[in-house]
Amino acid sequence: MYNAGKIIFGLLIFLALVTFPFYNNIGKVSAKPEPKIDTPEIQKLPENERKCVEPKDFMRGEHMQMLNDWRDSVVREDNGIYMSSQGKQFNMSLQNTCMKCHSNKKEFCDKCHNYMAVAPYCWTCHIQPKENKS
């Protein structure tokens, strides 16, 4: 091998970059986010009706899309009533619908979002539910 010093130095940098996610996580335990749904509003519902606007699997993936659609529908089309696939009606509102049931933003929305490192900018205008700081 020629120029061994420089070659090995370069390869070490390459290895350090490629394996970064591996050694960066050594000794760290990664906890899955467990959003809590034990809010008073949800507890009030009868056991078999403790459901979200749409089925859970759908909400998990599509809730941001749904919020965007709701926003457009309310702000641009002046239509504030959402008909769910279960045939239930909901008032399309971030604060008055989602956050009424999910009044525990820190224990619910933020659990996932912090894990994913997303910070929805909605709360610069919309008011967060009042919670005990924990």
């Binding site: 591996f22 996580n25 996932c112």
Partner: peptide, 29 residues
């Protein structure tokens, strides 16, 4: 076509920790 993004991260964290969670695999999409 949304996938279960939290599940993707759980899988990714498992992979880099050499401890992937087989249960999450079928939920992702």
């Amino acid at each position: 076509f949304k996938v279960h993004i939290v599940g993707v991260k759980i899988l990714a964290m498992g992979l880099v920790g050499f401890n992937p969670d087989p249960k999450i695999l079928s939920e992702i999409g």
